[in-house]
Design a protein around this nucleic acid. Structure first.
Lengths: 325, 325
DNA sequence: GACTCGCTCTGCGCGAATGCAGGTCGCCTC
DNA sequence: GAGGCGACCTGCATTCGCGCAGAGCGAGTC
């Protein structure tokens, strides 16, 4: 019981280290100290100590140490939305100051699918570096939908239209898909008869991984190649193409990539009299960037770079989309 | 220009220490490193270094080092509201977890005016401590309006109704005011004639400091004691009363406090034939507490304590307010 | 039921962050 | 204009926090 004369009786107890909130969120998201530690690039010991300190400061237990890892207590669950709001606000603040950065320097994190990364972007990274030597471009290829709001990336190329708020999205181009196989495969297995019932009977297929991202393609394969056997699945389109080149089976591939491979032949023979055989719906490639970053010069540089790639890559991309859905 | 295969390419550059936001706010509010340092309970060197680190991380200058101290740049101004939002959210989170704390232990910070602290609360702090030995009550007496939202205090007793959101306010009681002087003073200077024009001519007064808090009382004195000379002003009512006891002059004082002082006599003689002389509008004492803290047991203990003081202090407080405005 | 794997907690060495003292600059005051 | 004062920056000793290695422990598996 102490009487303080002023209002600045700033006792150390009760003063929270705001950075501990970051650890709190990481632990919640990974359910384990070790997972949070790797995500934060730190040691699990540190994460445990920071949590202990935080719990001591707020004088409440935030996580239950269970067999399935760290799960939030009632108190932890209660403050979780606030912690997430803090994170959003802080990331927004960083975007704010970086969004008005007019220098052609700094880091830009670009994410795209594996095929787009390797075939569409990577071959031109050298030219980008020549033009903008001070922009450190980081290319993260993943099929996962990264969260631009959480700043997991600055610019994203995606195969599904992002519906998150605060994003500026642009329809870049479309990717036509068709079935491909090698001459050797067709010589041995015979040419299938697309569009004819049972036209694929006995054939082998290299398919996409059974994930939401490839749902449409997988459904199309199931529907149009009845009787064929999917002998291999992969979430890497490059791997699928490699497998097809290795005569593992027929594969559904982006036309402009597969057409450049000498060994691959398009399986598209419409048999006279049957209904014409059409490939699956082309995939639309969307470009997404957070609204707050549009103003940053280095972001614009990347967007320009992608736009010029688009114009230069006409042979690769099937056709530029003209109509917005 | 590096190519990361996964999405967890967590490079250290760009990772911000969230705690630096706290420093950012402190620097902005005090305009100087030294001021912020004392407020944070740290050394100015540390504050400067943390700011330097933050500016390096976000790669932008947040403050201009001017002759009048540190003032926010465009970038700093831009993120300021976000930083304040982060602070609000974090303080709210702390209230959240503390608000459901059902233990009769912990810290409670109570703020009140100097007179309320010394005469109304302090004499009973010992009883409070006996009843709740594990609650560390901190009494901060200040005339300044502390910000309960910023957690400068948990419970506040104020003489003006707080209009801030998220506060639970309650009208506690009213304080009647009247003019007092010593017998010696009146013997020497003569008894004034309140209510009669010029009735205070030649008299000395001890007034309140010329601040917004005492505006109403000062206006009343100016209006009703024309001709008197205010020879001393203070923002401490105790000091004013001491001065009055020391025969410095007549003072406007809380009745129930001044009535207990043997040396002081109430100056209230209504002269027959004139309009009856009435004192100034009584001051209302408001109790304010943040809504989120109402659930905490230790806060309830303090509120109960104040409520019981109110009942027991009938001799001191003039009359309990019955009607809410 | 034993093995193995992964996660968490404890002691120890090291590096980084902090506090302190001295110096310097600019503003205010007399 | 000169003195004084307050605030900011730089070198040095200290302390605190971090990473690392090892032990314990629980769960899943064969």
């Amino acid at each position: 019981m102490q009487v303080a004369s002023g209002a600045n009786a700033c006792e150390n107890a009760g003063v929270i280290d705001w950075d501990d909130v970051r650890f709190f969120l990481a632990i919640h998201r990974h359910s384990t100290l070790a997972g949070a530690a790797t995500a934060l690039g730190l040691d699990a010991t540190t994460v445990g100590r920071r949590l202990a300190r935080l719990e001591q400061t707020v004088d409440a237990r935030l996580f239950d140490r269970t067999a399935r890892g760290y799960i939030a207590t009632a108190a932890g669950t209660r403050i979780l939305p606030r912690a997430e709001k803090i994170e959003r606000e802080l990331l927004a603040a960083m975007r704010d100051v970086e969004g008005e950065d007019q220098r052609l320097a700094g880091h830009v994190r670009l994410t795209a699918t594996e095929m787009l990364s390797t075939r569409f972007i990577a071959p031109h990274l050298h030219a980008f570096h020549r033009q903008y030597p001070d922009i450190r471009l980081e290319l993260a290829c993943t099929n996962r939908e990264v969260d631009l709001g959480r700043r997991e990336a600055d610019v994203a190329l995606r195969l599904a239209r992002p519906h998150q708020d605060d994003l500026v999205v642009k329809r870049l181009f479309v990717i036509d898909l068709a079935l491909y196989a090698t001459r050797e495969y067709l010589d041995v297995m015979g040419t299938p008869s697309p569009g004819r019932p049972g036209g694929f009977a006995g054939h082998r297929f290299v398919g996409f991984a059974d994930t939401r991202a490839f749902r449409r393609e997988n459904e199309w394969i199931d529907e149009h190649t009845v009787g064929a056997d999917v002998v291999l699945r992969s979430d890497s389109v490059s791997s699928i193409m490699s497998a097809a080149i290795a005569c593992v089976g027929i594969a559904l591939l982006p036309c402009k990539v597969a057409d450049e491979e000498r060994q691959l032949i398009r399986v598209q023979v419409p048999i006279g009299g049957d209904t014409p055989f059409v490939g699956p719906e082309p995939r639309v490639v969307w470009q997404a960037v957070h609204r707050d970053l549009i103003g940053a010069a280095r972001i614009r540089a990347v967007l320009d770079f992608l736009g010029r790639l688009l114009a230069a890559s006409e042979p690769m991309v099937a056709r530029v989309a003209a109509n917005e859905p």
